[in-house]
């Protein structure tokens, strides 16, 4: 029962947390003046008229960072149950974790040596 209650609380919290910031935004809609015109609504670029499409092609480095992050994220997630049970593990458990982290480190060294971590 306790577990259900905890997560029911989180569920309700998700609902309430969305309502709270919505209220002032809706309130501002009634209080604030609305006199739009073309110049006011134009894209803000320090007074210079905008040229070309906003949705330009981005460089591949962002994607590589994303990929590296993804791999690290998944590996660290695997380590969380290990860390959680660590007090009850023997030296074998430590060695298993060591090997796991060694592979993780290996990936980092590879990315480093291949200059995949450089912001080009």
């Amino acid at each position: 029962m306790a577990l259900v209650n905890e997560w029911a609380y989180i569920g309700l919290f998700f609902a309430v947390a969305w309502i709270f910031p919505l209220l002032p935004i809706i309130g501002a809609r009634f209080l604030a003046p609305a006199k739009p015109n073309v110049i006011k609504q134009s894209t803000y670029e320090c007074g210079v008229e905008t040229v070309g499409d906003t949705w330009v092609q981005f460089k591949v480095q962002y994607y590589i960072y994303g990929l590296i992050f993804l791999v690290f994220d998944v590996e660290i997630i695997f380590l969380f149950p290990w860390a959680l049970a660590y007090n009850q593990l023997d030296f074998f458990g430590f060695a298993a974790g060591l090997l796991f982290i060694f592979f993780l480190f290996d990936a980092l060294v590879y990315a480093w040596r291949k200059d995949a971590l450089e912001w080009l």
């Binding site: 709270f20 910031p21 935004i25 501002a28 003046p33 609305a34 894209t43 906003t54």
Partner: peptide, 29 residues
């Protein structure tokens, strides 16, 4: 609250309005 709320032309209206709500909600959570 009393300042005019300007939505730029070409903005994706629904998502544009959703973003500040997500921003605040995630911190409260």
């Amino acid at each position: 609250l009393t300042k005019e709320d300007i939505t730029p032309t070409g903005a994706d209206k629904f998502i544009y309005n959703l973003a500040p709500v997500i921003a605040f909600a995630t911190v409260i959570l």
